[in-house]
Design a protein around this nucleic acid. Structure first.
Lengths: 192, 192
DNA sequence: GTCTATATCGTGATAGAC
DNA sequence: GTCTATCACGATATAGAC
């Protein structure tokens, strides 16, 4: 590490590429996009772009990681619950259809253990479930959620619903994703 | 139609191909399968297989349609509720990972309105929601489900959860899909 | 660090023999 | 109806100039 500045500059350029790519995909969409298409849109040649990433899979993985990072900065504001922040992200997704499609596609492909991004997604899902589970237990402690709710199952359900709703929304954009998740939250929080 | 028997025979062969393909994919898995791989597995040349289908997309769409048909015959038994039949299908899916991956992949790709199977999936989802909604309203009428449940939203949620759980299950096969859906059903049926 | 050029591959689809 | 053979294409990845 620290090869006299060149390293830091390379990192900065990588970030710049990822930010530009996010923007392009969000607007222009993702249709099984090739590296070349993305390179054109970002203003580099295909080889020039792959100079910064080991492979196509790593490139798209890093785009999705960057997206998570941006979303976290934008929607994880301190005075807002985890669930509210999450709903805000889902609502925002309506405006970036290309990212929704990219995410759905890659997350499915990464289901194959041989896929280069398999570990990345496994970890991402575990992290999400952990954080949501924490929020859920806190809500239980505050008495907002019944104690007999199975935190682990409900956590997986919420994430699954969010993912599955994206598929339905892509098929039919009139589907209201946040309304569905709000109804799920209502089911979770209503008292017996 | 009815070109003197050749037609009926062609249909039979088509069905035979689809049944064999289902079996092969269920066991050997689906990794972005090419027509050629499937043809080998089915015992035909690539050209021989495509003789029966207009394109790769139509082939995979028909494989999935056939699967729905087989599942319906196997699990839609008369003395069982819609929800129980659905849970049985989900439980069965654990034994056919290749079909789960095929379905997940194609359903996401079909989100693009330009995809040849877009209409097929739109219709499939609508049909499912209609049937599940009917079952839910009946349960409301019997007093098993609260009247203040939003049938349309909950219907979409259930389907979304089933789809999303498949993604999580592919990433981590220890995930218990039916248990998650049973918990969702419990959330839906518990009385306030 | 970025380019051009190219190697290498696998794909879906089709033509035409049998 | 099924085969062999082949086409045309677009992909990723890499070599090497600048």
């Amino acid at each position: 590490m620290a090869r006299r500045g060149a390293y830091a500059k390379g990192i900065a350029k990588r970030e710049e590429i990822l930010t530009a790519a996010l923007d392009v995909i969000a607007r222009n969409g993702y249709r099984g996009t090739s590296v070349r298409e993305l390179a054109d849109a970002v203003g580099l040649s295909q080889a020039g772009l792959l100079h910064y990433f080991a492979s196509k899979e790593e490139l798209f993985q890093e785009i999705l990681r960057k997206r998570d990072e941006v979303d976290a900065q934008t929607f994880d504001v301190a005075d807002r619950s985890f669930i509210d922040g999450f709903l805000a992200v889902i609502g925002h997704n309506t405006e970036v259809p290309g990212l929704v499609q990219l995410y759905a596609q890659v997350s499915v492909e990464a289901g194959d253990p041989a896929h280069p991004s398999h570990a990345f997604f496994v970890e991402r899902y575990e992290q999400f479930r952990a954080r949501f589970g924490e929020a859920l237990r806190e809500a239980q402690a505050r008495g907002e959620v019944d104690a007999d709710i199975d935190v682990k199952l409900v956590t997986g359900l919420f994430l699954a619903a969010a993912d599955g709703l994206q598929v339905q929304w892509m098929l039919d954009p009139t589907i209201d994703m946040p309304a569905h998740l709000a109804e799920l939250w209502r089911l979770i929080t209503r008292r017996t």
